[in-house]
């Protein structure tokens, strides 16, 4: 991963004594969308404010493109040119009363000439789908439009890193869709994007890497969000049924499943050997996931080599997935016996 932002043992203690960050080691790569998840008060916003130099660490350091951020005026100016921050509440971010004036704010302050400012403002508003809004007053915009103006203000600066704090908070479905499109566009341009959110569906749709925080610490970092972490942090997600995946090379447990599926030659062979007549053998993975979304308990027997693929596919959907490993089938069998 080509790191753009990294924190090393980052601590932050507020003046009232609250320890918001306790030794955070965060990484975000170029051209990637890093999602920061966590319950309220987990320290997400505090961490984001460090990336832009708005907060100074109590201990530890923040590296931007491998170099530690320095906190003198000149260095911070350079940091803020490279790292754009979109606040959670657009009213906190929109400084000027007119849309054009607000998007042009940063550009004027970094010393661009009026012609270039005009071009960049036009381009940024076009990118966020607000063409022709230049002369509108900010307080007459809808919440979604205000959010897009706030993003345009950051996009116009052409930063290398775009940070968004809860970009979908308070937005309806269409608003969320607009934000997804904007994030995809920024990603295409090769920018590093860091987004803090509570919206797990939004996160799964756009995220490449997921960092989960709790109590000022990172408790998970990876390319997916394990169900137990999602549950622990109370992410709102409508979970359907359960998908139990059994590789062909372990004994098939006696599970009271609603639907049986077998994928791959070895998987089918293992199913027949265990005396199970699969409900489907064709497009078994997709059908299993669909059944599980519908609320069924599904037992999927497949080639051991396919497990990774099944797991990756299932993590995109609101399905509880359990992959059995050697020895686990015995425990499942025992628990199903107890249930009976």
């Amino acid at each position: 991963m080509n790191l753009v932002i990294e924190t090393i043992d980052l601590w932050h203690v507020y003046r009232n004594g609250v320890e918001a960050l306790k030794g955070v080691n965060f990484k975000a790569g170029k051209g990637e969308t890093t999602i920061l998840l966590g319950r309220n008060g987990a320290g997400k916003t505090t961490l984001l404010l460090h990336f832009n130099g708005l907060l100074k660490p109590t201990k530890g350091e923040v590296l931007l493109e491998g170099k530690p951020i320095r906190y003198d005026k000149k260095s911070l100016f350079e940091v803020r040119k490279k790292v754009g921050l979109v606040f959670q509440n657009p009213d906190d971010q929109l400084i000027a009363p007119v849309v054009w004036q607000d998007v042009a704010f940063g550009l004027k302050n970094i010393g661009l000439d009026d012609r270039e400012i005009d071009e960049r403002v036009k381009q940024a508003l076009k990118q966020v789908g607000l063409e022709g809004f230049e002369n509108r007053l900010c307080n007459m915009l809808s919440e979604g439009e205000k959010k897009r103006v706030a993003i345009a203000g950051v996009v116009a600066m052409e930063p290398e890193v775009v940070i968004m704090d809860e970009p979908t908070a308070g937005l309806d479905g269409f608003g969320v869709r607009d934000i997804v499109e904007i994030v995809m566009m920024l990603k295409k341009e090769g920018k590093a994007i860091i987004i803090s959110t509570h919206d797990i569906d939004f996160a799964l749709e756009i995220g490449d890497r997921f960092t989960v925080m709790d109590g000022g610490k990172i408790i998970h970092e990876g390319k997916d969000i394990p169900e137990e972490i999602a549950e622990k942090c109370g992410f709102r997600r409508k979970i359907g049924g359960k998908l139990i995946v059994v590789p062909h090379n372990i004994p098939v447990p006696d599970v009271d499943a609603d639907f049986f599926a077998a994928a791959g030659d070895l998987g089918r062979e293992a199913a027949y050997k265990a005396g199970i007549q699969p409900n489907t053998e064709c497009a078994a993975i997709e059908k299993s996931i669909l059944k599980a979304i519908g609320g069924s308990t599904v037992l999927l027997i497949c080639n051991a080599e396919m497990i990774k693929e099944v797991k990756k596919e299932a993590l995109n959907y609101p399905v509880k997935i359990e992959v059995l490993t050697e020895g686990m089938e015995k425990r499942i069998w025992e628990s199903s016996q107890r249930m009976r």
């Binding site: 911070l76 400084i95 000027a96 054009w100 704010f105 004027k108 302050n109």
Partner: peptide, 13 residues
């Protein structure tokens, strides 16, 4: 304002 590189200028159209 700090986050957006404020250096004492306000654009006017």
């Amino acid at each position: 304002m700090q986050a957006r590189c404020y250096s004492g200028k306000m654009p006017v159209k």
